[in-house]
């Protein structure tokens, strides 16, 4: 049987699904960019402790805001700034 998912886990997975749905509506290049970016960001936060719900919710809200921007059909591409050194 499936490992029982907590409420917050379900929310994150549901959010990831809506990201993938949004990506599907875009052209191939942008779709791949979105999928790669989403997965990267999620993987970055893999280490967050399960019980740290506040922090997870914080990132979830951040992600949802980004997703809203992406859902706009005028988005051409996405990029991120990384700190060097």
């Amino acid at each position: 049987m499936v490992a029982r998912l907590s409420g917050i886990q379900k929310q994150v997975l549901s959010f990831y699904r809506s990201v993938i749905r949004t990506a599907r509506a875009k052209d191939t290049d942008l779709r791949d960019q979105i999928l790669r970016h989403a997965r990267q960001e999620l993987d970055k936060r893999r280490g967050i402790e399960k019980r740290n719900v506040l922090l997870i919710e914080h990132y979830l809200r951040k992600g949802k805001k980004q997703l809203e921007v992406l859902q706009d059909s005028s988005v051409q591409g996405i990029g991120t700034f990384t700190r060097s050194g």
Binding site: M1, A3, R17
Partner: peptide, 8 residues
Amino acid sequence: DDEADKIA
């Protein structure tokens, strides 16, 4: 969602 969560 709730169906998808059950598929493992």
